[in-house]
Every structure is written in C-alpha cells, then in structure tokens.
Design a binder for these strands. Structure first.
Length: 596
RNA sequence: GGCCUUGUAGCUCAACUGGAUAGAGCAACUGCCUUCUAAGCAGUAGGUUUCAGGUUCGAGUCCUGACAGGGUCACCA
C-alpha cells in the first residue's frame, strides 16, 4: 500500500469514528499541497460538511488529529479554512524513494492485452512535408510510445495518399514542363521535385483561368474548363483504367517521393509498422454500403446515390456513395476501418488527423457504430490544431509553407552555432559533435511542438519560437547531461549507491523531498497522458522534474557532504532522475545526450 | 446563417478535470561561476482569466447570452 492509499484509508476510518459516515475511496481525493503552505497532500473537507455537521476548521482538525495518531506516514498537519494539509515524515519519503527505485519496470505498465493502431503522418505524394506534418508525425509517434508504456500493443500505421486528382496535377505539370528532370539531375529530394511541379501546376492553372475570363467566360466556367485541369482529370481516368504510360509515370514519380519521405522520416526519428496505400484501398467500402442498405442504416435517393441519416444524432444527412456508384472519401474510410480491424483485430484505433476533419470523423465513427462494428467504441480521432505562422495560414499550393526538411536542418544548424558559442565541444570527436547537434536541434523542435495541448492551434514564429533556454527540450536535455556528469564523478570517486540502504537517513532537504515527490508522480502522468492522448502532459511533467532537479542541484552540494550515506543517497536520487528524464523524453521521441 | 472549437501577463503556454493568494518560460530589470556543466539558480516587475448574467461553501474551469478569432457545413482528400 502506498502513502496515498494509507492516508485515504485513514480518512475513511476517521469519518467512521468521528462522524459515523462510510466513504468510498474514490470520494476521497488528495491534491498536492500548494507551495506556500506546509505539507505534501491536502484534503479538502468542504464537500463533506453535510455529513460532519461541524465547521470546516473543526472537521479538518478532527480528521487531522486522527491521521496523526493512526497513520504512521503522517507526522503533522495544519488547517487553513477547510483545507487539511498533511505533513509526511522522513521515513515515508525514504520509503517512497526505495519503492520507486526498486521497481524495475518503472514507467512501463504490464501488458493489458489490448491492441491499438495509431495511424499518423498519412502524407500526400504530390508534395513534401511541412511544419504541420511535423506536428502530426511527432504527435503520432509520441502517442504510440505513450500507449505502449500504458500496456498496449501498438501498431503504428501510415496510410499513404498516393492517388487522386491532386497527384495527377503534379504528374501533368511534370510531363508538360519536366524535360525529363530527375532528383539526381536537379540534386534535390524526390518529394521536393514533385512539390515543385504541384506549385507549377497551380500557377499554370491560374494563368489559364485568367485567360479564359478575358475571353469572356465566367469565373466558374473558366475554373472548370481550364485545359490543364481537364488534362489532369483525363489523366486520373487513364490511371483508373490502368493506362500503362500513366501508371509508369505515376510509379516513377511516387518512387522518387517515397525516397524523399524515407529520408525525412529518418531525420524525424519516426517509424511505421504497417503501410497502407490509397491506390490499394480506394475501392473498398462499397460492400459496406450494400450491407448498410440491407440493415436499413443507409437509404437511396432517386438518383441512386446512397446516404446515411444522422439527424437523430444531431448531424445531417451524409453521402456515402455517389449515384454512379463511384466512391467518396467516406466510402473509402469505412472500408479502411474494416480492413485495419481484419488485419489486426484491434481493440482501439486512433486517427491522428487535423481538426479540420472533426466533422468527417464524427460521421465516420457514428456510421461504424450504427453498423454494429465490434471496434466501434474503440475509434478515436486525435484531432490537433493547425500550426500558424505570423503571416497566417500555410498553403502548399501557394508555396507559403515552412518546409519540414529545411526547418529541421535549420534547427540543427542553430544548435551547432549555439553549442559552439558556449564552447562546449571540448573532447568531442567530429562525429560525436554532429550527433549532439542533431539531438539538440531535433529535441528543441519536437519539444516545442509537443509541449502544447494537441487540441489547440499554435503559433510558430521562425525568428523567435524555438529557444534553447527555459521551457525547452535542451533545458531538459541539459539537466540529464548534468546528472550524467555527476554519475561519472561518483564512479571515479568509487561511491557505492546502487544497493545502499537509506533508511538511516534522518533529515532530508526540502528540495530532496520535492524531487522524490515528483519522481513518484511519473506513472500517474503516463497514465493521464495515455487517457488523454496528450504528450503535452509528459512534456510539462519533464519540465517540472528538470526544474526541481536543478533546484536541488543548486541547493545541496552532493560531494561536499560529510555523511557518506547522504552522498550515496544524493547520487542515487540523481540517477533516478536521469532515468526518469530519459524514459520520459523517449515517450516524446526525444533523445538525451550524456554530455553537452 | 447552422454546428464545432478557441479566448488566461507584452509574447508563447500551464493550471492535477469545481478548490486556497491564477502559475511557468521568453522579453525587461537585480544578484550568483577559485568546489559537482551558468543551456543553470535566486529575486523584482508584469492579471478585472474577452464581456454580462447564472449555478454554490467556492468558478479560469459548469450553464445562458453577447463579442472576437479559427474550422466545418463538397458528389475534394
């Protein structure tokens, strides 16, 4: 039984004894005591005044007395209005620390027997990845790690959007203006080559529309009839008819893009267990439409188009299959949901997709539940906000995006400049230095994107946004490197701490207590992050942990201490902090250096 | 216009899901490197939590309404 539980027990008994009331454990919530008051846990008595039939102060005092007398962990208490602050003794701090450090699976829950798929990234193959994709990829990868730490078996999936009119746009532009350029001949990545032609298509298209308008067409007409658009539409038809020439071009350009993506993913540090391609899945889902019609979940209109009526659930009617029998996005997604389930027998399925698709997924999930899918309740849309620039929204077609590759390179470059300025690369080989810059640059970037609640839209200012001081990745990485330096010195001095018994320690510094307390919160935070699908919970926690450690570091001098037992204890406490930082940063997909 | 969502210090974000005097970082200002890494630590200053009501012992958090931003309401994906 841990400290919290024994306090809860004590409170239960106190209520029985003094007020003759039976409370259940989950009615008794303990909150951390605010910094300005003495104590570790606070019990709020206001909600129970009806059963205590006494003033808040009196009720709190009675419970406090009882706990002090009957719960060994509680050595003192104080009452402020209706808040009962409990003070824990040294022994329970040491106990708590021993518990944490003797747990070999700290930060990793045992298997819960459930399997979850996290689908993220899901790029289009007509353009390179940009800043928005970075948020998506880092989120998806991190959530996968967090779910794994919560005991799930996780499958990371990438559903590649490799077909459709937008892909044909790049292809048309390339075949018209490409002059047989290749990534090699241009010396650029394949995804950037495709992106170049996607932008070129848009330019050309706008030019043609303008020309048609001056020839007297209406804007709508011109936008529909621009020759280059007709070419793209024709190419899509040819592709669907398996035209050898179009398919060959499609394969060639896609393979370039995949090579480019692979390189970007490697730099991002993300990976996938399963790839799905829309060129394989885009015809799926029609059988589900049949099934839905039979079950009466869907209905047909006069033009033979198939719809679902969700008005009873507060939504509208929604098309699921066109009148001519061709698919829409929804059709495909219904089919893919079944495909994923049949491939892996999933208990849960997480879609990491931007919040502009909230409505779509709301509809999709409601449909799958109406159809009685066993996985219906396990579907979850991890909806995240856009990343805005000071100049506003990013648009690929107009080229106003922050390119993912460029940004990562810039971050690494900045890390290099910063490190050199601080003169911190003594004793590094060139390879080690390069690795360090990458760890720091990527750490800064990932932490910046993950520390914010995923649901919220966020602002990225290229000039100011990413710092190396304060609430940043490098700050946490720095704390880790500092501890590693302590551990190296401890080893050098021959200090034994791994199996030392610390129960003889009689007094702990306040910053040591704080540190033990926050270390003890780690598993709760992992659980919360898993429930909420929110890496920001972990990021926030790690910042607090690093801050508490740095406070401790400044407050006590580890090796100057006379008592060898205390020296060992402080080294052990440091080591545990480093382990927790490393594990936690791992959950965010961020590496930590041993030196920096 | 309907629906969804957001609004907290000059800026970027927190607030343990209804608890105490709303906290951090950046930017500004003050201190601290002859002992463990100053990418650090300590401190000063900065707030009518967009506004108006309501619910209650208690509201940034819940409800209603306004105002402002964003998204969506495609036979695009």
């Amino acid at each position: 039984m841990n400290t919290q539980e024994s306090i809860q027990n004590g409170i239960q008994n106190a209520f029985k004894e003094h007020f003759e009331v039976e409370l259940t454990k989950d009615q008794i919530s303990l909150v951390p005591t605010r910094k300005e008051f003495e104590g570790t846990y606070t019990f709020v008595v206001f909600p129970f005044l009806r059963s205590t039939k006494k003033s808040p102060e009196e009720s709190a005092r009675l419970i406090g007395e009882y706990l002090k007398d009957n719960v060994p962990e509680v050595v003192d208490f104080n009452v402020v209005k209706g808040f009962l602050n409990l003070v824990l003794g040294n022994a329970s701090w040491i106990d708590l620390f021993e518990n944490i450090r003797s747990n070999p699976s700290f930060g990793q829950k045992p298997s819960n027997g459930q399997r979850v798929m996290v689908e993220y990234s899901s790029p289009n193959t007509n353009k390179p990845l940009h800043l928005g994709h970075l948020r998506n990829n880092f989120l998806g990868y991190s959530v996968a790690q967090i779910l794994e730490a919560n005991g799930y078996e996780v499958i990371k999936a990438n559903l590649v959007n490799d077909r459709g009119i937008h892909i044909c746009k790049s292809m048309v532009a390339y075949s018209k203006f490409g002059n047989n350029e290749t990534p090699e001949s241009l010396g650029i990545k394949g995804d950037h080559l495709a992106g170049k032609y996607y932008v070129l298509f848009d330019k050309e298209y706008k030019k043609e529309v303008q020309k048609l308008i001056t020839e007297g067409k209406s804007k709508e007409q011109a936008e529909k009839e621009a020759p280059i658009l007709l070419e793209a539409q024709n190419m899509l038809r040819l592709w669907e008819a398996n035209d050898p020439e179009v398919v060959a071009l499609w394969k060639k350009m896609n393979s370039w893009v995949y090579e480019g993506f692979e390189e970007t993913y490697r730099k991002m540090g993300v990976s996938f267990d399963k790839y799905y391609y829309e060129s394989d899945t885009y015809l799926l889902g029609k059988d589900i439409v049949e099934e839905g019609l039979k079950k009466g979940v869907f209905f047909q209109k006069e033009d033979k188009s198939t719809w679902v009526d969700l008005s009873s659930e507060g939504l509208d009617e929604k098309l699921v299959l066109r009148g001519d029998g061709t698919s829409v996005y929804m059709t495909q997604d219904m089919g893919t949901a079944d495909l994923k389930y049949n491939d892996f027998k999933l208990d849960k399925s997480v879609y990491v997709v931007g919040n502009e698709q909230d409505y779509h997924f709301d509809v999709l999930f409601k449909i799958m539940r109406k159809l009685g899918r066993p996985y219906g309740d396990g579907l979850f849309h991890l909806s995240y906000g856009m990343v805005d620039l000071p100049s506003g929204k990013m648009k690929s077609r107009e080229g106003t995006v922050v390119d993912a590759d460029d940004l990562m390179d810039e971050m690494i470059q900045t890390a290099e400049n910063h490190t050199k300025e601080l003169g911190k690369i003594d004793g590094f080989t060139p390879e080690q230095a390069t690795e360090l810059y990458e760890i720091l640059g990527m750490g800064a970037l990932k932490y910046f994107l993950l520390k914010v609640d995923p649901k919220k839209r966020m602002l990225f200012n290229p000039q100011e946004s990413i710092e190396f001081q304060g609430n940043t990745g490098p700050f946490i990485q720095y704390s880790h490197a500092r501890i590693k330096s302590i551990l190296r010195k401890a080893k050098q001095l021959g200090i034994e701490y791994k199996s030392t018994d610390f129960s003889g320690i009689s007094s702990l510094h306040e910053s040591e207590q704080n540190l033990i307390f926050i270390l003890g919160e780690f598993e709760k935070k992992i659980q919360l992050a898993g429930q909420e699908y929110s890496p920001s919970v972990i990021a926030q926690y790690l910042f607090d942990l690093a801050k508490d450690y740095n406070r401790f570091y400044a407050d006590v001098a580890i090796f100057q201490e006379d008592d060898p037992l205390l020296v060992s204890f402080r080294v052990a406490l440091s080591e545990m902090t480093a382990k927790t930082i490393k594990k936690g940063m791992g959950l965010l997909g961020i590496s930590v250096p041993d030196r920096m």
